[in-house]
C-alpha cells in the first residue's frame, strides 16, 4: 500500500499567539512548532496501516526550510521518506495544487491529512486535492481500515456517525480517534536523518487568497459575581453596562 500523508507545521497548541506590528503576519518569535494535531492522527494511522499491510508512507509538507525538524519528527514516527515543497503554505488552493502535483501519476492508494490545520483552519485542502486529482474525498474521518482491498471508514456527521465503504485511491481528512498519536522512539529519532527528504520548488505560484489583516479577539472581561437574591442588579448591568438587553 502506498500512502501519502500531508502534514502542516503549526504553532504548539499551548502557544500564546501574536501578530507582527502591521497585523499582516503571525509573529513566530519564541513559538514552538509541531505537526498539526489532526495531521498527526492521520500520520499515526498511516504508520499502523503500513505495519498491518506493508507498503510505504511518504510525508509531504508545503513549507520553508524551518519546517524540516517537524518533517523529521514524522520520519522518526515511522514515515519512510519525505518531500518538502519549498514555499509558504498560506493559501489553501496553492497548497492543494502542490499536493496534487506531487500525487499525480504516483499511484498513491491513500492520501491522508488532518481534517484541517490548526493555524488557518481552512479545512478545505483535502476536498480540493481530490477534485484536482479526480478522486473521492471524505472528511472528517474518525475510523479508517482497509479490508480486502476496500476502505472502511466512519465519518462524524451531525448527531451521529456515518459508516462508509469506498474503493482506493481516495483522499481523507482525518480526526481522532482514528489512531492514537505516536511518540517516536529513540531508534526512530536516530534513523530519521538517514531517510530521504527531497526538496522541490513549488510547481505553480498562483495564490487565490491574500491575507489582509489579522487581529486577536478582545481580551476576556473580568467576571462579576451577582448575588442570586438580587436579579435587579443583574438586569441593570445587562442593560447599562453590557448593553445586551
Amino acid at each position: 500500500m502506498k500512502i501519502l500523508i500531508c502534514i502542516s507545521h503549526v504553532p504548539d497548541t499551548t502557544s500564546r499567539i501574536k501578530f507582527t506590528a502591521d497585523g499582516k503576519q503571525l509573529d513566530k518569535q519564541g513559538l514552538q512548532f509541531i505537526i498539526g494535531p489532526y495531521d498527526d492522527y492521520a500520520l499515526a494511522r498511516a504508520v499502523e496501516l503500513k505495519e498491518a499491510h506493508g507498503g510505504t508512507v511518504t510525508v509531504l509538507n508545503v513549507g520553508t526550510a524551518e519546517t524540516e525538524p517537524t518533517i523529521r519528527k514524522a520520519l522518526a514516527i515511522g514515515a519512510d521518506n519525505a518531500i518538502r515543497i519549498d514555499a509558504e503554505p498560506t493559501d489553501s488552493w496553492f497548497v492543494a495544487r502542490q499536493i496534487a502535483e506531487v500525487a499525480k501519476d504516483q499511484g498513491y492508494d491513500l492520501i491522508l491529512m488532518g481534517r484541517e490545520s490548526i493555524d488557518f483552519n481552512g479545512g478545505v485542502v483535502h476536498g480540493m486535492v481530490a477534485e484536482m486529482l479526480g478522486l473521492q474525498a471524505f472528511s472528517p474521518v474518525m475510523m479508517l481500515d482497509v479490508v480486502d482491498g476496500k476502505v472502511k471508514m466512519a465519518r462524524e456527521i451531525e448527531g451521529g456517525k456515518e459508516y462508509l465503504e469506498a474503493t482506493m485511491p481516495l483522499v481523507a481528512g482525518c480526526q481522532e480517534p482514528i489512531a492514537e498519536w505516536k511518540i517516536p522512539n529513540m531508534r526512530g529519532i536516530m534513523t530519521a536523518r538517514t531517510k530521504p527528504l527531497e526538496v522541490r520548488a513549488a510547481s505553480d505560484e498562483t495564490k487565490l487568497t491574500t491575507h489582509v489583516h489579522f487581529e486577536l479577539p478582545p481580551p476576556k472581561g473580568a467576571v462579576v459575581m451577582i448575588d442570586p437574591s438580587n436579579p435587579e442588579e443583574l438586569i441593570q448591568k445587562l442593560v447599562e453596562e453590557a448593553k445586551v438587553l
Binding site: 525538524p69 523529521r72 519528527k73 511518540i183 517516536p184 529513540m186 529519532i189 536516530m190 530519521a192
Partner: peptide, 17 residues
C-alpha cells in the same frame, strides 16, 4: 541538536502519557 531535542520531547511525552 535537533535529535537531542527530539529525544527529550519524546521522553517528556512518554512520561506525561
Amino acid at each position: 541538536t535537533e535529535e537531542q531535542i527530539m529525544v527529550r520531547d519524546a521522553m517528556r511525552n512518554f512520561v506525561a502519557a
